[in-house]
Design a protein around this nucleic acid. Structure first.
Lengths: 206, 206, 206, 206
DNA sequence: GATGAATGAGGATTCATTCAT
DNA sequence: TATGAATGAATCCTCATTCAT
């Protein structure tokens, strides 16, 4: 097991080290404030090597986004129980989502906070990712309900999940485990708050 | 009514122009990428005047955050029907929220996307704002339900609202009016998705 | 006696206030580091008024130098006992010099430290002043001794006086009064250190 | 021996070139008026390289002061004949001092004129240097005389030396060689002016 | 595979100075 | 007499990026 800063490391591993350092640095400081010097030092290599392997700051950030996005989608994909009923798929997918974001807070920060604020090439990349998730969730909701006009609900559900994930990431203690978060969200999304309210107090909306 | 770029404007009005330009620029480009040159030009003044009135980029951004935060809080505060039952207060507050964010998308972007990613002084400022909102929402939910452990629900609800607001801001056409968004969210939050699902398909969670 | 910041002050007095403020500011911060803003504020007036009366930073500094130089020369001139023997003239002149520099440390700082380091127009002005003093001292020494090659001695004596004045200005307590300094210097210059040394230990120089 | 402006020079040599350029520039223009652009151009490198090696204008100036101060103290230390009687040590030390300042007028200007006027971090640095010199001279005088109250004499002697050095630096021709200056000063300091004066004309001071 | 040496370009900030009243 | 409003022109400093080894 070679030390992080050791010499003569094969390219694939060096790239992984660089991406790790870049993800951590971008998450902590933001795209513009993170300097290539900082990243190279965190990776334990010289700056020209970062350029040799990853070409530019833009491409480096892009590679970070791609890696973290694929890591997150893979985690959710693997967590979803194929063949289960839609609600079961949602439940297991949410569980996978919360567990992965809790385990990789820097990756989550990059995707959710940083990439959206940097500007066009990257914001679009994450927007695509998010749209895929929303569409996937919308399809599950539609499958469960039969209704078609569920895009708003899907957005609300995804936003609620993001908010809970961010809550858990920023203040780990009170937020609870991934399972707790998924439970909270499924209760919230499925039964709504009205289950907690006496019927006569419910607002007559819509 | 003097034109925006006219000479010899009283200080209060110039400051307003500068803040308008700064909010628009920061929203579009992010804190780091926005240059003071750009902001000054957008405000129709020279850079030294911006510094004379607002002292530094940090303070300028801080002033933007404060102004937009107060504007949003005031809009929601004024929209909430005091004396109404908690659900009614939530409904009217959400309505005010969606209408304000739709009317001031740049302000919303600054608070929601930019300020959180810049780093400590600013992230903390918006974190406080958001915590206040979550606490307020949690109090309303608790008042409506009698239950105490509602912080998770409040986070979910606020996140859902943010997501819908962001959806509406980024793609105005399909998202609908503020009223539509509020309706969607209240339906989602109150009745849950289960209303749309035949009872036998509901997952038995938790 | 009008307050320093009062309105509608006659020009002569305003100019005096400005020069006072400028001398103090230039002495404390140096020519380049002192800003016109700072000086105007210290004088209790607005910047355009400083320009109206004194035209530019250069001319303002020049006016400071001229005023302080004349003030110092006048003090020394008035102190010198005309008609006394050369040594008596030197003694009284030194006394006047030390008393004036002790009473006006900012003026001394400007002449001795600041003006020499700023660059050509000003350095030359003070160089002229200093050359006059050195020549005057040289004439007195020559008159007392009959010798002609006394320029080096005059430089040494003036430098010793400056050093003692700077010592007194920077650490007032141990240095003693103007009279003490003048006494020290006259002892040093007249009798030399050899008076304190047994004759057989004196080096055989030159 | 590569030319001063040649490419790819080892760091140590580049730093020396930069310090040379900085000393010359600071001496000629003063700390504030000297621009980093000017210094970099004088050193034959680009500005970022100056920052890469010397971090900031402050640190660059500080490095100049340290280098010149050490250079001067080393020259004097090496010139002093250890084991000689105190007057001999003074004589040889003065000789070393005058020869070094004559050979390095820019270094002398920085220490004597510039650093004292810039403000606190630097003024303190040279004040320490000067205090050491004064103390050293005072010790020699005390050793030669047996008297204790010689600090004033030491200040006078050092000031006289500084003045003569400045005279020699600013107008090289009439001032004479280092040996001449040292002779003048030792004559002045040891025998005083009274040797040149008929006894009956001497003032009876203190 | 890896790096020390080097730079063009741009950004935040300050300052002396003027104009209109 | 006096000032609030305004700016052109630097200046310090940083950063992404490349070259020669």
């Amino acid at each position: 097991m070679p030390a992080a800063g050791s010499r003569r490391v094969p390219r694939a591993e060096r790239e992984r080290q660089m991406l790790d350092a870049a993800v951590a640095t971008f998450a902590r400081r933001g795209y513009r404030a993170a300097s290539m010097d900082e990243i190279a030092e965190a990776a334990g290599v010289s700056k020209p090597l970062v350029y040799l392997y990853l070409n530019s700051k833009d491409e480096l950030f892009s590679a970070c986004i791609r890696r973290e996005a694929e890591s997150l989608t893979a985690a959710v994909r693997d967590a979803v129980e194929v063949g289960a009923p839609p609600e079961g798929q949602l439940w297991s997918g949410l569980l996978g989502f919360f567990e992965h974001t809790a385990a990789h807070p820097d990756g989550w920060t990059i995707l959710y906070s940083q990439a959206r604020t940097v500007g066009e090439p990257f914001a679009a990349e994450v927007a695509v990712l998010r749209a895929e998730i929303v569409d996937f969730v919308a399809a599950l909701i539609a499958a469960a309900c039969g209704s078609q006009d569920v895009l708003g609900y899907a957005h609300a559900l995804v936003g609620a999940a993001e908010s809970l994930a961010g809550w858990a990431v920023s203040s780990p203690s009170p937020a609870g485990s991934g399972r707790d978060l998924a439970t909270t969200l499924m209760n919230f999304a499925w039964s709504g708050l009205s289950d907690l309210i006496p019927p006569q107090d419910r607002p007559g909306l819509s």
